Amino acid sequence: MEGEMVDPGFPAHTATATAAPQPRPAGNIRFDPTYINFRNIPGMLKIAQIVFNLIGYICAAVSTFNSYSHANWFSFVSMTGFWVTGILLVLYMMHVLERFYMVPWLMLEFGYCALWCFFYLTAAVACATWGGVDSGAAAASFFGFVAMILYGADAFFKFKAWRSGDIAQGGQQVQMADPGMPSPGAY
Rank of each mutant, 00 (worst) to 15 (best):
A177I: 15
Y57A: 11
N37P: 01
Q175Y: 12
A147D: 11
Y68T: 00
V6H: 12
Q49H: 04
W162D: 07
P42N: 14
T16K: 14
A139W: 12
F143D: 07
T16D: 11
Q173E: 03
C59A: 13
F157D: 10
V62P: 04
F145A: 11
L106S: 02
T34S: 14
I58P: 01
Q175K: 09
M181Y: 03
A60Y: 15
W162V: 14
F76Y: 15
A123C: 12
G170V: 10
F118A: 06
R99G: 02
L106R: 05
I149P: 01
S67P: 15
R30W: 00
F10Q: 14
N28K: 10
L108H: 12
M94Y: 06
V174W: 01
C113N: 12
I36S: 09
W130I: 04
H95A: 08
F159P: 00
F76H: 13
M94I: 05
A161P: 04
P8L: 01
P184Y: 09
F118M: 00
D7Q: 10
F142E: 06
V84I: 08
A161R: 07
Y57K: 02
F31E: 04
A153K: 07
D166I: 12
S63G: 13
P25H: 10
C117L: 09
A140K: 09
M181S: 13
G136K: 03
P11C: 02
T80A: 12
T34A: 08
M176S: 07
G111W: 15
W105R: 00
A147E: 03
A124W: 15
S141C: 11
Y57H: 08
Q49K: 06
L88V: 09
A17W: 11
A186P: 15
A60H: 11
F118G: 09
A138R: 10
G136T: 07
A19K: 12
Q169D: 05
H13I: 09
A153M: 07
F145S: 08
D154V: 03
E2H: 15
V84F: 15
P23V: 08
V90E: 05
T64H: 06
D134C: 08
F38D: 15
M93K: 05
F100P: 02
A177T: 15
C59G: 06
D134A: 05
F110L: 02
C113A: 06
Q49Y: 01
A20S: 11
E109R: 07
F157N: 08
N37I: 07
G132I: 14
Y187I: 07
Q49P: 00
F76D: 03
M1T: 14
P21A: 11
R30Q: 04
F31H: 01
G165Y: 12
A128P: 13
G152R: 14
F145E: 06
A12C: 05
G131L: 06
S63D: 09
P25W: 13
G27Y: 04
T122M: 02
R163W: 15
G180T: 12
W73L: 02
C117T: 13
I167A: 01
H95E: 03
K160N: 12
P23M: 03
E109Y: 15
A168V: 03
F145W: 14
